[in-house]
């Protein structure tokens, strides 16, 4: 069991002939993901790696292959357009890896995606993986193992660090979701927590947050009110200075709000076990899973 992606995931890769798109399409195929189509305008009719048909439009890909999920590896200037196109073609789950999408574009993209009944993950995210079943995005498959802990995170390599600790200590994962480091994202912590709570294959959740905004505080309130499964949390950026963007567009402490301290307090108040170091994830989960 898992959230968002499973054995029924039929993936179309937008930007499959690009440098990043082709590299990661190969990786996703090697992992066993059903990559059923690629899209690059002007290259319709070609075949990727001798097996995946390439189409000019997402609508063509959906009609010909029954694709239900898309992953986007196009440059920032075209990313919003690619999301609109996927939503318009009836794709149910759209995962946007692209970093650097203008935030103003995202304010218009989000209502459109919702109006089409689609879910967007990202932008500026590593995607998601259901170990042993499917991976959509760029999370290295070899560090994951199938199991019953769900993970949701705003970052990429920090997620790998924590997943690596889990796997090496024999704690497998149901699904790992990187929701992205931008101020406006399609799927937030609460969306993932709700899905993990409902997923019979998940026993506990790891939540990796960072400075900036109030998503973690809102998520803590949600955990307190709605989660029966144990949650372990981490906040990156305890040593970050105020008013500076720490790499991620969303990771910025404005005024006195969005600090790591404030978020860790919110976690603790909601009964979330707070990791001091990434490695603490193992002991805290063992305590709670018995």
């Amino acid at each position: 069991m898992s959230i968002f992606i499973d054995a029924g995931t039929r993936l179309v890769v937008q930007g499959i002939t690009g440098r990043d798109g082709s590299f990661h399409a190969r990786q996703m195929i090697a992992y066993g993901t059903q990559v059923v189509a690629g899209v690059t305008p002007g290259k319709g009719g070609q075949t990727f790696e001798g097996s995946v048909p390439v189409f000019n439009t997402v609508a063509d890909a959906v009609r010909e292959t029954g694709a239900n999920t898309s992953v986007i590896y196009v440059p920032p200037s075209g990313a919003a357009g690619a999301i609109y196109e996927a939503a318009d073609a009836g794709i149910a789950l759209i995962v946007c890896i692209t970093e650097g999408v203008p935030v103003l574009d995202m304010t218009r993209v989000m209502p459109y995606v919702r109006s089409r009944g689609a879910r967007l993950i990202g932008p500026n995210c590593p995607g998601l993986i259901t170990p042993g079943v499917a991976k959509v995005g760029i999370i290295p498959g070899n560090i994951c193992a199938p199991g019953r802990v769900g993970l949701v995170s705003r970052s990429g390599t920090l997620t790998y660090e924590v997943v690596n600790h889990l796997t090496r200590n024999g704690i497998g994962q149901s699904t790992c979701v990187g929701i992205g480091g931008d101020p406006i994202i399609g799927t937030n912590f609460i969306d993932c927590l709700r899905a993990f709570e409902a997923d019979a294959g998940t026993d506990a959740v790891v939540m990796m947050g960072e400075i900036g905004g109030t998503d973690e505080q809102n998520a803590a309130a949600f955990v307190k009110a709605h989660l029966t499964k144990p949650v372990v949390g981490f906040i990156a950026g305890q040593t970050a200075p105020k008013g500076r963007r720490m790499g991620h567009a969303g990771a910025i402490i404005s005024g006195s709000s969005g600090t790591a301290e404030e978020k860790m307090e919110a976690f603790a108040a909601a009964g979330i076990a707070v990791m001091k170091r990434p490695v603490d994830v193992v002991a805290l989960l063992r305590d709670r899973l018995g």
């Binding site: 995170s153 970052s155 997620t159 950026g237 305890q238 040593t239 790499g247 991620h248």
Partner: peptide
Amino acid sequence: VVNGAGLAMATMDLVKYYGGDPANFLDIGG
């Protein structure tokens, strides 16, 4: 020197945790 913004922040935090003081945030990117 770290790859990825989240891991870079977590690394600075860990330096502090072990009693040190980070001189910078640096993300070399993907």
